[in-house]
């Protein structure tokens, strides 16, 4: 396959205008809940802070919206990804092998003024096939998962 990597300039919420590589581009065919019209996002790591647990999911067309993502297993080791196989198939994850190799699991973080109240949305995890660069906001079938899990509290429980 020909290497088609190229850089584009996008206007990001956290870093202003930045150059990003086309291989950071993730297509969300269905958009995200409430933001269905935006299909192109860029997955950005924290500039100058590579060890940060957070990643940015930046809309590729506009500054807004962007989201902060975290790997849920970093604060909740017993997190169970329980979504319908159909949702995984939509991003090209058809087998357990696929999942093991290519599936990235994130949840969206909300950080209020008082950051000790930061929460994670375990009900609508953001799933990315890192090989196909396709993403979906799935719906967790686990009834225990809501949209506002306090991250600090969850860490105490782990």
């Amino acid at each position: 396959m020909v290497d088609t990597k190229e850089t584009v300039e996008i206007n990001s919420q956290p870093f202003g205008k930045i150059q990003v590589s086309s291989d950071q581009k993730i297509i969300f065919d269905e958009g995200l809940y409430g933001f269905e019209r935006y299909k192109v996002f860029y997955l950005l790591s924290m500039k100058d802070d590579e060890e940060s647990p957070f990643l940015y999911l930046q809309n590729g067309e506009d500054v807004y919206p962007s989201f902060i993502l975290i790997n849920p297993y970093l604060f909740k080791q017993d997190y169970v990804l329980d979504v319908s196989p159909g949702e995984l198939q939509k991003i090209g994850i058809n087998t357990e092998e696929d999942a093991k190799e290519n599936l990235l699991v994130f949840v969206i973080v909300t950080i209020p003024e008082d950051s000790s109240g930061m929460t994670a949305n375990l009900l609508g995890p953001v799933l990315i096939n890192k090989n196909l660069k396709s993403g979906i906001q799935a719906l967790s079938l686990n009834e225990k998962y809501g949209t506002k899990h306090n991250i600090i509290e969850e860490m105490k429980n782990k």
Binding site: P14, V109, G124
Partner: peptide
């Protein structure tokens, strides 16, 4: 609606 509301709340990210 639940996830949409949560997303809207999360969509303005705080400063770096």
């Amino acid at each position: 609606d639940l996830i949409k509301t949560a997303n809207i709340e999360s969509s303005k990210t705080p400063d770096l």
